[in-house]
Amino acid sequence: MTELLLIIVSAVLVNNFVLSRFLGICPFIGVSKKVETATGMGMAVIFVMTLASMITWIVEYYLLDPFNLSFLRTITFILVIASLVQLVEMTVQKIAPPLYTALGIYLPLITTNCAILGCAILNIQKNYSFIEASIFGFGSSLGFTLAIVLFAGIRQRLSLYRVPKSMEGAAIALITAGILSLAFLGFSGLVK
């Protein structure tokens, strides 16, 4: 039990996907202008990443590995993820139309979120069991959501202030992200 808890704490704080591992930067910079949209994206990512971790784990250990096809990992994983996102999109559209409209364009964008593919590959590299992989996927997406929501909060406030012209937009966002990442560095050593 503590093992699993450690995985979550480590994934959310110590090795935060966005601020430490540099995974998921594109949506991080692109979608974080308002807290609501950031939260929506975060929820979608939690759902997709947890599911994707589980399914890609199964694909690797029951399909690729037994037949020595590990070199097809990249291509199968990304296809699995793309299909999963498509499926989630269709399901959400049928089951909860308001949620679908709220998430809008963010759902298909998740496919190119390197965080999902990165997480799937990391699970294999770390030799996680099925449970550990699922927890890691869940924890990492929590970390992503935490980072993106925090960041959106900062950016929303920042938009009310005057920033040098050339700094507007991505530049100031990146520098802010750097400071946030600096803060998260304080968590290292938390999990031995």
Partner: peptide, 15 residues
């Protein structure tokens, strides 16, 4: 480390 990466890129984009 990560902060340095973000900040440097930020300044480059600004530049």
């Amino acid at each position: 480390l990560p902060p340095g990466a973000f900040i440097t890129l930020g300044f480059m984009v600004a530049g």
